Amino acid sequence: GKMTGIVKWFNADKGFGFITPDDGSKDVFVHFSAIQNDGYKSSDEGQKVSFTIESGAKGPAAGNVTSL
């Protein structure tokens, strides 16, 4: 299901970062391709987002990331 969290950091040059879930669980990796914004796929530190957890090649990753 959908979770909410805060972007801990995001490196636009490398195209990835981490989200800290609101439920206190482990930080989740986020790749720019998962960000659902139109246009520039980046996110700012401290941005509140909703997301799903997908199982990626390197473990859990955020999917369907949407700014709230």
Rank of each mutant, 00 (worst) to 15 (best):
D38R: 09
A34P: 05
F51A: 02
K14S: 07
G17S: 00
F16Y: 14
D38K: 11
V30E: 03
Q36V: 13
G17A: 04
G1S: 11
D27P: 08
K2V: 12
D13G: 09
A61I: 15
A57W: 13
Q36A: 11
V30H: 03
I19H: 01
I19R: 00
S43Q: 10
V65M: 03
E45K: 15
M3C: 11
W9K: 01
D38A: 13
K58R: 13
A12D: 08
T66A: 08
L68W: 04
K41P: 11
F16M: 02
N64G: 07
I6Q: 07
H31V: 04
V30M: 13
G1D: 10
T52D: 07
G63S: 13
S43T: 15
P21F: 05
T66Q: 12
D22H: 05
K41C: 14
A61L: 13
N64H: 09
H31Y: 08
G24N: 06
N64F: 09
F10E: 03
A34F: 05
V28G: 00
D44I: 15
N37S: 13
I35R: 00
E45L: 14
D22C: 14
I19T: 00
N11A: 06
K41F: 15
V65W: 00
G17I: 05
K58I: 08
L68Q: 07
K41N: 11
K41L: 14
D44P: 15
T66S: 09
G39F: 13
V49I: 05
L68N: 07
E54D: 08
V30K: 00
V65I: 06
G39S: 11
F51Q: 02
D27V: 06
G24K: 04
G56P: 03
G46V: 08
T52G: 03
A12F: 12
H31M: 04
K26Q: 12
A62W: 02
I53M: 09
S25N: 06
G5T: 01
V49A: 00
F10M: 02
N11L: 04
S43V: 15
F10V: 04
G5I: 04
T4S: 07
G15L: 04
E54S: 10
I19S: 00
E45G: 14
T66D: 04
V28N: 00
E45W: 15
K48C: 13
S33P: 06
D44W: 15
D23Q: 04
V28Y: 04
A61M: 15
F18Q: 01
G63D: 06
K8L: 06
G63V: 14
S25A: 06
N37T: 12
V30Q: 01
G24H: 06
N37I: 13
S67T: 12
K14P: 02
T52F: 08
G1P: 13
F16R: 00
V49R: 00
S42N: 10
F18H: 00
S25K: 05
G46F: 10
S42M: 13
K14H: 07
K8F: 06
L68D: 07
S25P: 03
S42G: 11
Y40C: 14
I19G: 00
S55P: 12
A57Q: 11
V65F: 01
D27Y: 02
D22A: 06
E54K: 09
D38V: 11
M3I: 10
G1T: 13
G24W: 05
F16H: 02
K2D: 04
I6D: 02
A34D: 08
V65P: 01
E54R: 09
Q47M: 13
Y40H: 11
P21S: 04
K41I: 13
Q36L: 13
T20S: 10
G5R: 00
G59H: 05
S50Y: 08
D22F: 06
N11D: 13
G17F: 06
K26D: 11
G1E: 11
G5Y: 00
S67V: 15
K14L: 14
I19K: 00
P60S: 07
D27C: 08
G56A: 08
G56S: 13
D22I: 06
S50K: 06
S25T: 10
K14E: 05
G24C: 08
S67A: 13
E54T: 12
S43D: 07
V28A: 00
L68Y: 07
S67Q: 11
I35V: 07
F51E: 02
K48A: 10
K8P: 02
G5C: 06
P21Y: 06
I6T: 13
S67E: 09
G39A: 11
W9Q: 02
Q36C: 14
K26L: 09
M3S: 06
A62N: 02
F18I: 05
G17K: 00
F29D: 03
L68S: 07
W9G: 02
G17Q: 00
I19Y: 00
G15K: 06
G39V: 10
V28Q: 00
I35H: 03
V7G: 01
W9Y: 07
D22K: 02
V30A: 01
G24D: 04
D44S: 15
F16E: 02
G17T: 01
I19D: 00
K2Q: 09
W9V: 02
D23Y: 05
T4R: 06
G17M: 06
T4A: 04
L68K: 05
F51V: 03
Q36W: 10
K58Q: 10
V30F: 15
G15E: 02
Q47C: 14
I6M: 07
P21H: 02
S55Q: 14
T4G: 02
V49F: 03
E45I: 15
P60Q: 09
G1V: 14
H31R: 05
V30L: 14
T20G: 03
Q47G: 08
A12P: 12
G63K: 15
V65H: 01
N64Y: 08
D23H: 06
F32I: 14
V65R: 00
V28T: 01
F16T: 01
G5H: 02
D22V: 05
F29A: 00
F32A: 13
E54W: 09
K26M: 10
N64I: 06
T52K: 02
A12G: 08
K41R: 12
D22N: 05
K58N: 11
D13M: 12
S50A: 10
D38W: 14
F18K: 01
A62H: 02
Q36H: 10
K8Q: 03
I35C: 13
F10K: 00
I19F: 02
S33E: 07
F51T: 01
G39I: 11
D27R: 03
S42K: 11
I19Q: 00
L68E: 07
K48T: 06
V49M: 03
F29M: 01
P21I: 04
V28W: 03
G24S: 04
A57F: 12
E45V: 15
Q36Y: 10
G46K: 09
I53W: 08
K41G: 12
S43W: 15
A61P: 02
F16P: 00
K14T: 07
S67G: 09
E45D: 08
T20Q: 10
G24I: 01
G15C: 09
T66I: 13
N37Q: 12
V30C: 08
W9D: 03
V28F: 04
M3G: 03
Q36N: 12
D13T: 13
F32S: 11
A57K: 12
P21W: 06
G39L: 12
F51M: 02
P21A: 03
K2H: 10
T52Y: 09
K58V: 07
V49L: 03
P21L: 05
E54P: 00
G63I: 14
